[in-house]
Design a protein around this nucleic acid. Structure first.
Length: 265
DNA sequence: AAACGCGCCAACCGCGTAGTA
DNA sequence: GTACTACGCGGTTGGCGCGTT
């Protein structure tokens, strides 16, 4: 599982749903030689969460808020690693989660966002209030891929299947089909899409032939500069700035979710 | 009714990134 | 600049439930 080089992109494009800049003081510990394990595995539970564990976690977070995941299990009296607590909260216990089936509109939005972003599930989730990256990833792998294939569209390239094969052959400079044409069917985890998406610095845009209408909110505002930020691509009111606000690197665009009521006021 | 296969999804794993000392 | 840590992300896996034989 090669790690793609898009982490910087992901970081630059971090959605607003991400917590504010982290403060580690509460859980920082004296520097120790070597990397300590994220948790004491011998004394942590694994597997499915019990109702009691859920209740403990929820009540603790209600009282103290999110953050300091490493210290949280001990403070909350949970025999879980902080990572596990965070995942449970983010993917299942958060009160703003929308449970239930995806709507057709959500389906289409996910497809369009995936065409634009690749396997950037957290970014996609940022556009679907109440949905988690894990949920969307699972839904993509179990439903949408099949749906696209039924339409004759390659779920990784978002091109007609035949065109995708031809394009691959052209890139390889051979007439032969791709070496691993089925690699994309390994649960959608091939990095093909993310690789092509992540190579945005040098490659042409994904699916240049697609005229994506990604309007998910107000009509797109005119791009303030020739550069195109992701908000604009997504048809959102653009609040990006160059070298601007907190968390936005000099010379880069931040990626911001649509404004929620009362946000940034 | 039992066995089997398959799909779904919650949870885990490992790595990259960013913040701090 | 370096070392270290916590966090967040994407990929992967294991178990459960359901449908089929």
């Amino acid at each position: 599982m090669p790690r793609d080089s898009t982490r910087s992109l992901g970081a630059a494009l971090r959605p607003l749903s991400s917590p504010p800049p982290r403060v580690y003081r509460c859980c920082r510990q004296p520097a120790a030689m070597g990397r300590s394990p994220c948790c004491e595995k011998a004394h942590t539970n694994k597997g499915a969460w019990t109702k009691e564990e859920d209740e403990r976690l929820v009540s603790y977070i209600r009282a103290h808020g999110e953050g300091c995941w490493r210290a949280l299990p001990k403070a909350a009296g949970l025999l879980r690693c902080g990572k596990s607590c965070r995942l449970r909260w983010m993917n299942y216990l958060r009160p703003d989660l929308k449970r239930g089936n995806f709507t057709d509109a959500e389906d289409e939005l996910i497809i369009r966002l995936h065409a634009l972003l690749g396997n950037k599930w957290s970014l996609i989730a940022g556009q679907l209030p109440g949905r988690t990256d894990n949920e969307i990833k699972n839904y993509w792998n179990t439903h949408i891929k099949r749906k696209l294939m039924a339409r004759g569209i390659d779920p990784q390239t978002h091109r007609p299947v035949g065109a995708a094969a031809a394009a691959t052959a052209a890139v390889l400079g051979t007439g032969a089909p791709a070496a691993k044409p089925e690699s994309s069917d390994d649960g959608g985890n091939s990095s093909g899409a993310s690789a092509s998406a992540s190579a945005g610095t040098t490659e042409e845009p994904r699916c240049p032939d697609l005229n994506l209408d990604l309007s998910v909110g107000p009509p797109p505002a005119p791009a303030p500069t020739p550069s195109v930020c992701l908000c604009y691509r997504l048809g959102q009111a653009c609040r990006c700035q160059r070298g601007g606000g907190p968390g936005v690197q000099q010379g880069t665009f931040g990626y911001l979710r649509p404004l929620e009521q009362g946000q940034y006021t």
